[in-house]
Structure formats: structure tokens, C-alpha cells
């Protein structure tokens, strides 16, 4: 559980000599964990993944995946990783099972073994009934599940999931999350996950790196990152101004602002610990309140804090879009 399975040192990718997609990126992924990569469009997530899965070669730095160098031993790397790319890769003219058996042959999985795996994997993602139907009859969610199977046929040690729930509805997304958790625990694989949806990273990842402009800005568990924002927000609305003034004098709060008539926005280190104190203070001083809400920071706020995405949008949404388009073109 504790060994390092992926390590990058100053990993760099410059497209066409000028577009710097990934720049001196350092990552360390531990065996058995789900590791999230979050970042805005054009941050370098997919480029990083593509280098680690040896689809493209880096222009600088190095990376070791499962003990193998991604440039010198790319074939060994490919043998021990499974990939679920952003786009669908299954052949529409074949059935789900035929796709699965074909990909098994790519990895020299013996036929008998592949058939056993096929039963297990189709059951794992609830796709047994559709296994022998042509993929062209599948819905988007079914195709995504088939992609999970195709990434797992050879029992990889590491699974790369690039935006696994992009374009899926909310129900299917939650379902996918369950499959991913199931895969991690039952098949004992390390999972690298990229996502636009921060609640997805929050839900699934043991640790996460926030990436922007091709660099890692911060790494930690979702809890640590949220904690790094220094506190939760408790909003209290009291019945009169006098009570509000009294409330402001309470000890042990980080910051307090009046944000509306008799309404205080109280920043505390931890709502779990501070809430009982606030309630005690209210009852001790016989204050009466009309409303009390607690807001814990989400990863979205962490993301905004570190990427300054709102700032970037304000100063140049066009520029960001152009950069993303250039990168997509350079990748082709």
C-alpha cells in the first residue's frame, strides 16, 4: 500500500517547440491509492496522462511507471497499465464481449483466462445482459462501462481514468463512482483519475494534485486541501441588532463580518468543534436566532483559490480557449 508506483521528475512537454503543455511536473503516486488530477481546461492533465501511458513522449524530464521508464521501457509500461481514455475506443461493429476478447489478445491473455475475466468484469459493471450485443446499440453510460472493462482485461496494476464521467447524467455518474471504488478495492489497482468535476475527485480520490499551466500547484488529500483554506463558515441571523453586537464578542472565532441586517458571517477553524460553542453562547446569553447555516469549504473553493480561474476568465477567456485549441491541434 505504501510503495511509490509512479514518479515524475521535472516532466515536460513542449508542442511544436513553443506550446508548453506540461512544465517541470513532479508527481508521486503511491501503490493502491486513487490519485486525482484536477485543473482547468488546457492545464496539462491529458498531456500528462498521455505521457504516462506512453502515447506521446516527453520533451524533458523523466517518469517511472511501475518501475519502468516511460521512454526507454515504454512496452513494459504499456503491459502493466490499463487505460480508459476520454473518448470511446470500442468498435461499434463488434459486440461488447468481442471487443473485450480482442483487447485481451493484445495483452496475450490466454483464451481460457480471458473468458473467466469476461464473466467477472461484465458482472462487475452490470453489463452482462448487453455483453453479446453490438456496441452500436449501447447507450453512452453502457459504452463508458465497457471502456472500464477494456481497461481491465489484463489485470493491470495501474488504471488511468481520463474524465470517466464526462457527458454522463447525474445518476449514471454516481453509478460510475461506485464501480470505480469497487474496482479499486476488489481488483487492488492504483487508479489515476482526471476530472473536471471536483465533487468526483472529492468523492473518489485519496489524494489530489491541482494542476495549472502544466505545473502542480498543490497536492494533498481532499480533506487536507479543504482544511488548508482555514476554516468553515457559520452564518447566524439574530432577531435584533443588540444580540448581533453581543454575538460578535464571542471568543474562539477567526473572523466575523456583518453581511446583512442582524446577520453575521462567522469564520471558524472547524465547524464541528465551533458549532456547539456557538449554540452554548446563544443559550447562555438568552439570544434568539431565526436562522443558522454551516458551510464547509468544497474542493471548488480550493480550486479557485489555487488556480485563480475566475481571474483568468476575467482577463482572457478567449486566450484560454485559444491555448486549449492550439494544444488540441498540436496533439493530433
Amino acid at each position: 500500500m505504501n510503495g511509490t508506483i509512479i514518479e515524475t521528475k521535472n516532466l515536460t512537454k513542449i508542442y511544436n517547440g513553443k506550446i508548453k503543455a506540461v512544465s517541470d511536473l513532479n508527481l508521486e503516486v503511491k501503490e493502491g491509492e486513487i490519485y486525482g488530477l484536477a485543473g482547468p481546461n488546457g492545464a496539462g492533465k491529458t498531456t500528462t496522462i498521455n505521457m504516462l501511458i506512453t502515447r506521446i513522449s516527453p520533451t524533458g524530464g523523466e517518469a517511472i511507471v511501475g518501475g519502468y521508464d516511460i521512454v526507454k521501457n515504454s512496452l513494459d509500461v504499456r503491459r502493466l497499465i490499463g487505460v480508459v481514455p476520454q473518448d470511446f475506443t470500442a468498435d461499434e461493429d463488434l459486440t461488447g464481449r468481442e471487443n473485450m476478447m480482442m483487447v485481451s489478445q493484445f495483452y496475450d491473455v490466454p483464451r481460457q483466462k480471458a473468458q473467466e475475466n469476461s464473466n467477472t468484469l461484465f458482472k462487475l459493471v452490470d453489463l452482462e445482459e448487453a455483453a453479446d450485443r453490438l456496441v452500436r446499440t449501447y447507450s453512452g453510460g453502457m459504452r463508458k462501462r465497457l471502456e472500464l472493462i477494456l481497461g481491465l482485461v489484463h489485470e493491470p496494476r495501474i488504471l488511468f481514468l481520463d474524465e470517466p464521467t464526462l457527458g454522463l447524467d447525474v445518476q449514471t455518474r454516481t453509478q460510475m463512482w461506485n464501480y470505480v471504488k469497487e474496482i479499486q478495492t476488489r481488483l487492488n489497482v492504483t487508479i489515476i483519475l482526471t476530472s473536471h468535476y471536483l465533487e468526483e475527485i472529492d468523492e473518489l480520490a485519496d489524494r489530489v494534485s491541482i494542476i495549472d499551466h502544466g505545473k502542480v500547484l498543490i497536492t494533498g488529500s481532499p480533506e487536507e486541501l479543504k482544511g488548508s483554506l482555514n476554516g468553515d463558515i457559520v452564518t447566524v441571523t439574530l432577531t435584533d441588532q443588540k444580540s448581533a453586537e453581543l454575538m460578535k464578542t464571542m471568543q474562539g472565532i477567526v473572523e466575523v463580518n456583518e453581511v446583512g441586517p442582524n446577520t453575521l458571517r462567522i469564520k471558524v477553524a472547524s465547524a464541528d468543534e465551533s458549532l456547539p460553542k456557538i449554540i452554548n453562547f446563544i443559550s447562555q446569553h438568552s439570544l434568539s436566532i431565526t436562522k443558522l447555516t454551516v458551510q464547509k469549504p468544497t474542493l471548488d473553493e480550493v480550486f479557485l483559490e489555487y488556480t485563480g480561474k475566475t481571474i483568468r476568465e476575467a482577463e482572457g477567456g478567449d486566450e484560454a480557449r485559444k491555448l486549449a485549441m492550439n494544444m488540441r491541434r498540436a496533439r493530433q
Partner: peptide, 13 residues
């Protein structure tokens, strides 16, 4: 353009 190439290229064939 339809995607299977991505699967082929990331496998060890």
C-alpha cells in the same frame, strides 16, 4: 476518428 486507434496505441501491440 472513431476511437479504436486510441485503444490500439495504448496497448503493447
Amino acid at each position: 476518428s472513431l476511437g479504436p486507434m486510441g485503444r490500439f496505441l495504448s496497448s503493447p501491440i
